[in-house]
Design a protein around this nucleic acid. Sequence first.
DNA 1: GTCTATAATTAGATAGAC
DNA 2: GTCTATCTAATTATAGAC
Lengths: 188, 188
Amino acid sequence: MVDGVLPRAERRRRTEARILEAARALFADVGFERATIRGIAKAAEVDPALVMQYFGSKQELFQQAVRVTLVADGELGAEEVVENVLGTLNVKLGELPQSSLAMMRSMLTHPEAAASAREVLGKQVERLAETLPGEDARLRAALITLVMLGVTVGHQLLEMEELAGVPQEEIARVLRPSLRALAGQEVS
Amino acid sequence: MVDGVLPRAERRRRTEARILEAARALFADVGFERATIRGIAKAAEVDPALVMQYFGSKQELFQQAVRVTLVADGELGAEEVVENVLGTLNVKLGELPQSSLAMMRSMLTHPEAAASAREVLGKQVERLAETLPGEDARLRAALITLVMLGVTVGHQLLEMEELAGVPQEEIARVLRPSLRALAGQEVS
DNA sequence: GTCTATAATTAGATAGAC
DNA sequence: GTCTATCTAATTATAGAC
C-alpha cells in the first residue's frame, strides 16, 4: 500500500500473467514435452522456482495456459447459420490466440491436450449440427470442423509454404464453395 | 549356414524388421518424445541395447521408421485426374500405414517429423496442382491436401467420436462434392 | 554378438537460506 | 516472498563382461 509501489497482490497478479503469456508462447512453439519450466521462466524473466510456486506443476501450468481456449472458442462461431463458419475463417487464418495454438500444437502427443481438443471440436460440431439440415447433420458438421482444422494446422502449425503469403480473403474465397457443399447447400 | 538354423544375416534382418515394426507402432501411438527405446525394445522382445546397436540413436530409428512413408505416399495419388484424390479417401480413412501415422503423430512437435510432413504434403500438392485448371491451382491443391489431412487427423489420430463408427464410403460420399468444388469443378 | 551395468544428461520438483 | 542449491527420477547412450 506504499505510494509509488504496486500492492503485492497486484504485483503477483502481473507476474503470473507474464508467466502465463510466456508459457503459452513456448507451448505453442514447441509443444508440451519440449517446453521446459526453465525455458518458460527465462522467457518470463522470473526464477524457475517461482513458476512452480505459483502453478504447482508443469501440468497445471499447461492447463491454465490453454484453459482460456474453451471459453474463447465457445464464443467464436456462435450464431445460427452456416455463413458464420465462413466468418471464422478470418480468425482461424489470421492470428489465432496463443492459447488455441498451444492446445493444437500438443493435441497429437499430449493426452490432456488431446482431450481438450476433442472437447472443443466436439462442441463446435454440436453447435454446427443443430443448424444443418438432413439426416447426416452431425457427420457434415464434423467434416466441416475438420476441414477448418486441417487448413489451420497446415497454415499456422506446419507453416506450409503454399499458404504462406496467401491473403486470408483468397483462402476464404476458394474454400467457400467447398464448405457450402459440405453444409448441404447445392448451389452457391 | 548350419542346417535348421537361419543364417545370422537373415536372423539379424528379421530382428531389425521386428524392431522397426514395434518402433512404428509406438511412435504412431504416443509420438517421438513419449516413445522410449526401452518401450520399443520390450515390444519387440529384444534388449534395449540391441536397438541402439542396430540403429545408433533414437533419432535414426525414427527416421528409418518413417522413411517408407515417402515412397508409399508417393505412389498413392499417382495419376492425372481429380477422381484419384477421392480414391485415396479409402486408403486415408481405412488403415493408413503405420509409418504414415507415426510421422503424422509427431509432425506438430518433432522438427524432423515436421520437415518430413512438409515434404510429403508438398509433393502431394505439386502433383495435384499439375492436374488442376486455373490460376490458383497450387492454392486449390494445397487446400485439397489439407482437407484430407484434417479428416485423417480427426479420424485416425484424435479419434473423434463423430467419425468413429462411420463407414468410409459414407464419409467419402459426403466429402466428394466438397472436394469437387475445391478442384474447380462447378457441378457434380 | 548379446546384454549387464553404468555413465551422462536433463528434466520436474523440493527444501531451506536470506 | 524469492531464489540458491539440491534431490529424484527417467532417459539416451556407452563400455565392457561373457
